[in-house]
C-alpha cells in the first residue's frame, strides 16, 4: 500500500492555519467582543437575547448549553447568554412582540435551510453533488436528521431517537436498516461507514464505488502475489467483473435472511 498523504506539508499547512489563529488569541485582549458570524437579517427586528427566548421556549433553555452550537458567537452586541439563539434564528424582537402569527417574524431552518448553509457552506455544496438528499429541493430539511439544539446529549431527545445508531436513517430507509437473520456487521459501525449522507459524486451516496469500499475492512494477508483471497476464496477473477456488490455476487449488502454470505 502506498504511504499515507497525511504528510508533513499538510501538517505544515494546518499548523500555519492554527498559528495564525493563536496570534489572534494573543492580540485579542485589546479587541472588541464582536465576531463575524453574521446572523440572519429580519427587517425591522432587533436582538433581544437568549433570556427572552427562554421565556417561552423553556425546553431549550438548559439543554442548549450542551450543544455544539453553543460554541458559536455571533455579531450581536446584546449577548446576555454569551451565545444567542438569534445567531441562527435572526433578531427576535418582532417575533416576541407580535400579538399573533409570530412565526412569520423568525427564521425557521425547518422550512428553509439557508440559516444552516450560511455557516455550513461545505455541506451546502455537498447537497449540490449529483447524488444527494433533496434538501435544496425543499423535500427534506436539516432538522429531520439533526438536532441543532443539542438535546441529544440529554438522551433520549424526544421521540424514539435515543441516539441509537442509524436511527435517523432507518425512519425512511426501512428496507436497508431493518433486522436481518444475517446482518452485515458494518451496520454496527453506522450507515456513514459506506455512505455520505449529504451528497456524493457516487450513486447511492456511496463513499467509493469500487471494491476498496469493502476491502478496507475485508482485506487479509495473502499467500502470494497475483491473488486476492477473501476468506477461502480467491476473488481476483471475480473482482475483474466489477465491485463486490455490483458484480452480482454480494448483492444483499445490508443483510440477508436466507444467505449467510449475503449473496441475495
Amino acid at each position: 500500500m502506498p504511504g499515507s498523504r497525511f504528510s508533513k506539508r499538510w501538517f505544515a499547512a494546518a499548523a500555519g492555519f492554527l498559528l495564525g489563529g493563536l496570534a489572534l488569541v494573543i492580540s485579542s485582549c485589546s479587541s472588541v467582543q464582536r465576531t463575524v458570524v453574521v446572523p440572519p437579517h429580519i427587517p425591522g427586528a432587533t436582538f433581544v437575547g437568549n433570556q427572552a427566548c427562554y421565556e417561552c421556549h423553556t425546553n431549550y433553555s438548559h439543554a442548549f448549553q450542551g450543544s455544539v452550537h453553543f460554541r458559536v458567537q455571533a455579531d450581536i452586541e446584546k449577548l446576555p447568554g454569551g451565545t444567542s439563539c438569534e445567531s441562527c434564528h435572526g433578531p427576535g424582537s418582532r417575533h416576541a412582540e407580535a400579538p399573533r402569527e409570530r412565526a412569520q417574524f423568525i427564521i425557521n431552518p425547518r422550512k428553509d435551510p439557508k440559516a444552516c448553509f450560511d455557516c455550513h457552506q461545505d455541506v451546502h455544496l455537498q447537497f449540490r453533488l449529483p447524488s444527494h438528499h433533496p434538501v435544496t429541493e425543499g423535500i427534506l430539511n436539516c432538522v429531520q436528521c439533526h438536532d441543532p439544539h443539542g438535546r441529544e446529549i440529554f438522551k433520549p431527545a424526544g421521540g424514539l431517537g435515543m441516539a441509537r445508531l442509524n436511527e435517523q436513517c432507518s425512519s425512511c430507509h426501512k428496507e436497508q436498516a431493518r433486522t436481518y437473520v444475517f446482518e452485515h456487521e458494518a451496520m454496527r459501525e453506522g450507515c456513514v461507514s459506506c455512505h455520505q449522507p449529504h451528497g456524493s459524486i457516487n450513486s447511492k451516496l456511496l463513499t467509493e464505488r469500487d471494491a476498496n469500499l469493502c476491502l478496507k475492512c475485508h482485506a487479509q494477508v495473502q499467500s502470494g502475489a497475483g491473488e486476492v483471497w477473501i476468506g477461502k476464496t480467491d476473488h481476483r477473477s471475480l473482482l475483474s467483473l466489477g465491485s463486490c456488490w455490483s458484480a452480482g455476487c454480494h448483492t444483499a449488502v445490508h443483510g440477508s435472511n436466507f444467505q449467510p454470505k449475503l449473496l441475495y
Binding site: 500500500m1 502506498p2 451546502h124 455544496l125 455537498q126 449540490r128 453533488l129 459524486i201 463513499t207 467509493e208 464505488r209 469500487d210 471494491a211 476498496n212 469500499l213 476491502l215 478496507k216 482485506a219 487479509q220 495473502q222 502475489a225 497475483g226 491473488e227 486476492v228 481476483r236 473482482l239 475483474s240
Partner: peptide, 22 residues
Amino acid sequence: SLSGNNNEAEVAPYQGEVWNLL
C-alpha cells in the same frame, strides 16, 4: 481510498479530486 490489495490490478486505488463551485 486504499486497500491492502491495491498491488493487484483488479483493485486500483480510488483516488481523485472534486471541484465544487456555487
